[in-house]
Amino acid sequence: MRLSFGRKFGVFYASLVYLFLYLPISILILYSFNRSKLNAVWTGFTTDWYVRLFHNDSILEAAKTSLTVAVITTIGATMIGTLAAVGMYRYHFRGKIALEGLVFLPIVIPEIVMGISMLALFSQLKVSLGIMTLLAAHITFSVPFVMVVVRARLAGFDKNIEEAAMDLGAKPWTTFLKVTLPVIAPGVIAGALLTFTLSIDDVVISFFVAGPGSTTLPLKIYSMVKFGVTPEINALSTLMLLATLLIVLFAERLQQKEK
């Protein structure tokens, strides 16, 4: 079967798109197994870089910081964002639309502006930079994302089922835990996973608000790259990629189960 020129061009074009998307990542993964210290020539297969990675205390330290911050941010931002979204959905009050807009605005504010403004605020308040400021910043920029996702889930929410629960004798808190939360759970989980990935790979805002003892993994990579991209960084990046993919896969599984 002969392909027409249009079809041929279409295939070529699509291949280019996928090439640009996945070639860099493939190279990165490939060279993390390269014996040479240079990212230029392939000299043989090795897993040495991974072994070295797990013996590099400063990287492990950064990974620990990143994970700690990501986990606490996920819990904090998901709780705050979910309650805020439910509150915004449930109650009607003067200026609600304006307030909602103000909550969602940080999503489009340039990250660098957020970072600088937070740094300015912390120095104004004379708060020393460290893990606490890092947490505060991460939770702050994550809350709007959780709210957006949970709000989307609430759009199809039947308010009557909350009344039905109370009608059947459930106090407001029981109603929230037993009825509201399970129904909006897919939105809450999606918000939590989004928060986790946002927090674990954030560079720009973290750059401004992290202190000397609270370097996150992305910041560590960033500082290492200044001395050239080593296979060690490739290995580290590969691991981060793997972790993110696993989270996305997990989220996808949850969504499938829901259906």
């Binding site: 039947d158 009557n160 089922i161 009344e163 039905a164 629960a165 009608d167 059947l168 009825v179 129904v183």
Partner: peptide, 11 residues
């Protein structure tokens, strides 16, 4: 106890 118009069953 109430029977709601749209049933309001817990999905």
């Amino acid at each position: 106890n109430t029977v709601f118009q749209n049933y309001a069953l817990f999905p």
